[in-house]
Design a protein around this nucleic acid. Sequence first.
DNA 1: GCGACAG
DNA 2: ATCTTGTCGC
Length: 214
Amino acid sequence: MQKALLDDVCWRNRVRKTKYICGCDVSYWPAMKSIKKVRAACAVYKYPELEEIEVAIYTESPKKTFPYVPGYLSFREIPFLLKAIEKLKSPVDLFMVDGQGRAHPRGMGLAVHLGLLLKKPTIGSAKKRLYGAETEVAAKKGSVSYLRDKKGDIIGAKLRTRDNVKPVYVSQGWGVSLERAVEIVLNSCPKYRLPEMIRAAHNNAQINGGKINS
DNA sequence: GCGACAG
DNA sequence: ATCTTGTCGC
């Protein structure tokens, strides 16, 4: 399915106005075996001011969830993400997800798949590498190095969003150039390692603030 | 066969 | 991903 969907992907930049960016994330409880609750959250932020405009949350107690399998995260999280996204009332120009986009074994990471379904520009911002050859990136905020596939083509970027802090992996989703994606992610990290809208989505998706109870 | 492996 | 606990740097 991922290989087939790749034909519909637009790597060209077709984004002009990015006044409203929505960060998305999903949390599970418990995390490992027999998941009882899943919560997806979306946080719309005004860009580049980074002011929160709206938050939408969707919670469910699914009988069964698609397992986490590296390379197939889309099938596990997209169903929940769509539920939270459809609750949004405010307009969104671009979606940012916590995961890879083009930097994926088949070029079909979560961000790309979601963009195809929504027909909206998307960007993938991940905390760890999934695929691609990487090189060191300078310690200064704003520094970039690139992720390449086996052919040597660039499929993503390793971006330092804070001085001396572990970099984030940025890659194209749908309809956004890598250059633009890197620029947007960097402008969304004024004080923390991760983009503000993703941090907000992550926080709102938390089911038990770090405790085993409730 | 072995190592890697988003969340 | 989630949970726990401790340490290091600005």
